[in-house]
Design a protein around this nucleic acid. Structure first.
Length: 197
DNA sequence: CGGCCGATCCACT
DNA sequence: GTGGATCGGCCGA
């Protein structure tokens, strides 16, 4: 098992990175509680050239500034006034790539996740949907721009192998506004039939 | 300063 | 399948 740090995130190819993140384990130490889960679904957002990205066209605002950090920090923002969506910022400084965490398979702290979610639906074994995954991990906008590998949020490689054939690649969810870019196959999901954890 | 809307989720029909 | 919840960011005036 190894802790993934900065160098892992500073590669240019955000789409490959989104695929590679499948099977890695996201761990949080928030509110005195440890929770973790295997990443089972991601989406790549390809910086300034991607209409679906908040940083499209090089847009810099208070919110998007985090995306321009060097890879290896969190980018968290509020969506629909109630959901905190969690991304890994990737790429070199000033290249605003990000990978949205869309689903995890819970490992540690399942009772904590159920409490945070106020639901028992974790029984079915996974937490799907970017809002619920972040909520289960205890991540809110307070955790924007934090170093991945710091005290609160870590990413581990526990040696889980994700066979290429078990990966489903599709267009991204909820980005109809992005025109042609809405069709880009930047979403990666582990086929539930292939779960080995 | 006002108005629109989103990288969503859930309850309900 | 559909609509309501709910609010910060963003843009135009």
């Amino acid at each position: 098992m190894s802790l993934l740090s900065q160098e892992y995130f500073v590669q240019e190819d955000v789409v490959s990175l989104a695929r590679d993140l499948l099977g890695k384990v996201c761990v949080t130490h928030i509110d005195e509680r440890i929770t973790s889960g295997v990443i089972t679904e991601t989406e790549a957002y390809a910086g300034v050239s991607d209409k679906a990205s908040h940083a499209f066209g090089g847009k810099r605002t208070k919110r998007t500034e985090t995306m321009y950090f060097s890879g290896g920090v969190s980018y968290v923002y509020l969506c629909y006034g109630m959901h905190h969506l969690f991304n890994f910022v990737t790429g070199p400084k000033d290249v605003p790539h990000a990978v949205l965490l869309r689903a995890i398979h819970p490992l540690e702290g399942i009772s904590t996740m159920e409490m945070r979610r106020n639901r028992k639906c974790l029984k079915k074994g996974f937490t799907s949907g970017p809002g619920t995954a972040a909520q289960a991990l205890g991540i809110t906008i307070r955790h924007n721009a934090l170093t991945i590998g710091g005290k609160l949020i870590q990413l581990e490689d526990q040696g889980i192998k994700v066979p290429f054939a078990s990966i489903i690649q599709t267009p991204r969810i909820g980005v109809d506004y992005a025109g042609e870019d809405a069709k880009l196959p930047y979403r990666f999901v582990i086929d539930t039939k292939c779960y080995i954890f």
